[in-house]
Structures are given as structure tokens and as C-alpha cells.
């Protein structure tokens, strides 16, 4: 085991429940979820913030969990794809199934977390690179705001449709 200064005790809220464990300071939030907590819904596509497959909600905001050190998110609230559904799937999850908004499914948990975080950003009237004037939801806005989640299968039009349905744009 690493010396005490090279490892840390981390407590955080994970999908609504407290978690406490000792981590190698090098461990990313992504690897903590996948390798230590068996929450493998969050995927590792690139490990460098270049694909979005590892997107989770950190204090409600979407971030790339591969670039967050586990030790640095101590005390914060993390929601992963496993924490979105209660008895029923989250409306975004149901919409992704209904619109066939994925093929291989590997980027999908990240897409869904990102879409949920994105709609909150929209509700807060955050602008995007394609916004002109007051922020409102249209396909161009969804495409730009979801550009940080790569889908190599190319399900983008169906992802846009699923998000539009959940946002009430249909």
C-alpha cells in the first residue's frame, strides 16, 4: 500500500448515499467508480476529456470524471447513470430507448448524464456558441451543447430527437 501521504480517505455522496474509502491519490473519479465501487455504467472512452463517455453530474453539473481526481471531489455529490432511475427509468433514459438514440451503447451513459446536465444549463439561460439573442432550445442548440459527447456509431440525430422530446420541444 502507498504511504499515508500518497493515499487519502475520501468521503462523498454517491447517488444519494454516503461513501467512504481510502484511495491512491492518483485514482480518478472515473476509476474510483469503475474499479473500486463496481459502478461500471460510467465508461472510459479516452481517459483524457476528449470523448465524454465518462460524463457524470458533480454537484449537479456535468463533468468528465476521467479528469477529476477522486481525492479532490471529497465532500461533493456525484450522480452517475446508475443513480438516475428510481423504480422507473429517468425520462431521458426512456427517451433514448424510444428514439434508438444509441447503437453500441458505450457512450450512452455519458450522453444521458450530459443531456440532463445540459437541460439544467439551458434552464439557467446559459448561452452556447450558437446562441443568438435569448436562449431557446432548437436542434442547433442541442447539437452544439452535446458536442462534448462523441458517438462513433453516429446516433446524433436520434440523440437530438430524444433530448427534444424530454425538453418538451416536440
Amino acid at each position: 500500500m502507498a504511504g499515508p501521504e500518497l493515499a487519502s480517505t475520501v468521503r462523498l455522496m454517491l447517488n444519494g448515499a454516503p461513501v467512504e474509502l481510502v484511495v491512491d491519490n492518483r485514482t480518478t473519479l472515473l476509476d474510483l467508480l469503475r474499479d473500486r465501487l463496481d459502478l461500471t455504467g460510467t465508461k472510459k472512452g479516452c481517459d483524457h476529456g476528449q470523448c465524454g463517455a465518462c460524463t457524470v453530474l458533480l454537484d449537479g453539473r456535468r463533468v468528465n470524471s476521467c479528469l477529476q481526481l477522486a481525492v479532490a471531489v471529497a465532500g461533493r455529490e456525484v450522480t452517475t447513470v446508475e443513480g438516475l432511475a428510481d423504480d422507473e427509468p429517468h425520462p431521458m433514459q426512456a427517451a433514448f430507448v424510444a428514439h434508438d438514440a444509441f447503437q453500441c451503447g458505450y457512450c450512452t451513459p455519458g450522453q444521458i448524464c450530459s443531456a440532463i446536465g445540459m437541460l439544467d444549463e439551458l434552464a439557467a439561460s446559459w448561452p452556447s456558441a450558437v446562441s443568438t439573442g435569448p436562449v431557446r432550445l432548437d436542434d442547433a442548440e442541442i447539437r452544439e451543447r452535446m458536442a462534448g459527447n462523441i458517438c462513433r456509431c453516429g446516433a446524433y440525430p436520434h440523440i437530438v430527437a430524444a433530448i427534444r422530446e424530454v425538453a418538451g420541444g416536440d
Partner: peptide, 21 residues
């Protein structure tokens, strides 16, 4: 027909090769 494994994929339950415990 929507995908048989659709719910597994959108909830993170679907285990890929590197996910198997």
C-alpha cells in the same frame, strides 16, 4: 421494435468486456 437490451444500456447495467466484475 426498440432494442432488447435498450434499458440495460441506458441504465448502465449492460456490462462490456472491461466492466465484468
Amino acid at each position: 421494435l426498440t432494442r432488447i437490451e435498450g434499458l440495460d444500456k441506458v441504465t448502465g447495467r449492460a456490462r462490456y468486456a472491461g466492466d465484468v466484475a
